[in-house]
Design a protein around this nucleic acid. Sequence first.
DNA 1: CCGTTTGGTAAGGGTAATGTGCAAGA
DNA 2: ATCTTGCACATTACCCTTACCAAACG
Length: 759
Amino acid sequence: MSTVEEDSDTVTVETVNSVTFTQDTDGNLILHCPQNDPDEIDSEDSTEPPRKRLCLSPEDDQSVDDAAPCISVVALPLSENDQSFEVTMTATTEVADDELSEGTVTQIQILQNDQLDEISPLGTEEVSAVSQAWFTTKEDKDSLTNKGHKWKQGMWSKEEIDILMNNIERYLKARGIKDATEIIFEMSKDERKDFYRTIAWGLNRPLFAVYRRVLRMYDDRNHVGKYTPEEIEKLKELRIKHGNDWATIGAALGRSASSVKDRCRLMKDTCNTGKWTEEEEKRLAEVVHELTSTEPGDIVTQGVSWAAVAERVGTRSEKQCRSKWLNYLNWKQSGGTEWTKEDEINLILRIAELDVADENDINWDLLAEGWSSVRSPQWLRSKWWTIKRQIANHKDVSFPVLIKGLKQLHENQKNNPVLLENKSGSGVPNSNCNSSVQHVQIRVARLEDNTAISPSPMAALQIPVQITHVSSTDSPAASVDSETITLNSGTLQTFEILPSFHLQPTGTPGTYLLQTSSSQGLPLTLTTSPTVTLAAAPASPEQIIVHALSPEHLLNTSDNVTVQCHTPRVIIQTVATEDIANSISQAELAVDSDLHSSDFPEPPDALEADTFPDEIPRPKMTIQPSFNTHVSKFSDQNSTELMNSVMVRAEEDIADTDLKQEEPPSHLASAYVTEDLESPTIVHQVHQTIDDETILIVPSPHGFIQASDVIDTESVLPLTTLTDPIFQHHQEESNIIGASLGSPVSEDSKDVEDLVNCH
DNA sequence: CCGTTTGGTAAGGGTAATGTGCAAGA
DNA sequence: ATCTTGCACATTACCCTTACCAAACG
């Protein structure tokens, strides 16, 4: 059915206050509203309530039923006494692309809410009628559907879960309750009145779905794990004794009702296990065709009552029947062909072509259609999962990044089989490397906040940035990684994800430190990357030079990354650890004045082609900034105009260390990534082509580039050549880079080596 | 009293991840 | 001959929706 789009790129936003958007680790937009200009926050009431709510509503005030883009907003007070606040916004209603024409303007309004503990009532209808509906009957559902409402179904995304958890947390805080289980399992209905409604706010799911989710989450008899043989025995006894009273059985076993119910479904007395006999297969096929009124050879992947099938087959459970049919028999019956490596590449390409921001948006039925080696849409999806797992940290990277990485990986494999086969000397067994690539990792490079360097983290401009390193986890000794760095979500992102940056003055006009805001933990996943705030007047094509410092690398790495943004021009350069002091006070930022046009393909199309195998692998950056100024307004079209790809070339040498990291449990991901990040030594050499444009330095009156800074041409100092001692220092220091520049072939192979890792 | 709202259960279709057996290759 | 590895298939814990029910509410 319907799904929710959170494609903020297409949402038009107008701010009515001086605010800064940032993005949290899950892609939620955070709106920062500093307290220094409170009178603008609410025009109707000069007294500042401690609580405010941000409300997004369509400008033309469409009727509630009109499926207007709804963005739910959660206000987070930063502290009791602090009048500033944060707002988390999540788009919750699907909006067709064509509805997002220029005319659709969503306005942000800061509203007041005196009641600390009330989150939802105001604007409930605008936000989501769905989330306040229990959906008791089919009529309820139809009624909402007819009114144009759509809602999310299927697996909950991480974003949704986080919203839910946030809501619950705030509900608890507001009422001084420590543990949500008190409400969920101990309170009477009356006592927890409005609990579910309140916490459902911001979620475009029926109330009942929220209720179920919450019960499961907080039921500690859920997620208990594998059933022991003793438990199975006891379960059998209890089943005989209590029948289908799952609650009672579950209580006796210390398991949730749904858990014991599900387990019972798996254990039919008559069930065979292991390989299917021919007789069983034949019977399954007959039954399926009979019950679905289809002929042998017909493709049947849906509308099968597996319980009924299992009943008729007799020797297998419904799940066994379903699995056998969808993963093998259906395909065999309809004369399917074998799945090949080409199919695998094809799948990646096809998914990439879909250009969906979220994996959940993939229509597997459509994708599987007419594809003879695909056994079923369900099977294709599981195939995708196995492909995905070739990227060890696939969970930590956004979907587009993952796709990009996989594309590179497979392209690379296709074009350089020899290199893969020659891969040796790393001390790692390399058998079958050429046929299967495992445990490639998309590197997550993060610029972490460092309060020692960043005295006012909230004050400055913040830019969500993606930097992802595709690399091998293989060789601890050596390696050169290919790198593409993407600021914000470009179409060409292959890299990692930074939560948000802000710019910090360095003492040099126009030279800034680029730093992340605090409190954003890993793993960082930008599923949707909405607008990025970047200081510049939206209409002005001026260039900003940003001298960025990566605190992450203060300790043990040197890291030069330069980003050139065409419109507006932004050069972001991260600098070497040991040169921090210099960087802060230095007067000039070097840009290599040798222009290597040939090294610097034209964006954006060339980037794709250039990305990996054909050339010397070169790290790249793409920046796609948009703006958030004092009062900014960007439509879909505008933001497209504003988002100009920036290409930066950087070459790096990364010494990989810990190769044991494979797929850590999610709760360890943070440590894992961090650890990973500490290891590499990254040296970026930058060759920029400025074309015939002038580099400009933009000073900011605030000391940092603030969202409200209006940067006009007069405030921009033209500069043609910049010198950066740090940069030069690194050039001298880095023999590797010099060597790699001199020997493109070896560089290439080395890169490939590193990209592809076998265990 | 009665229609509506809210909270709840059972059944069953499904997904995501792990386990297992086996063939191919080193 | 033996070990390793990758793969396909099998299994299973958990997830989600639907349909239906009943108590509480207004």
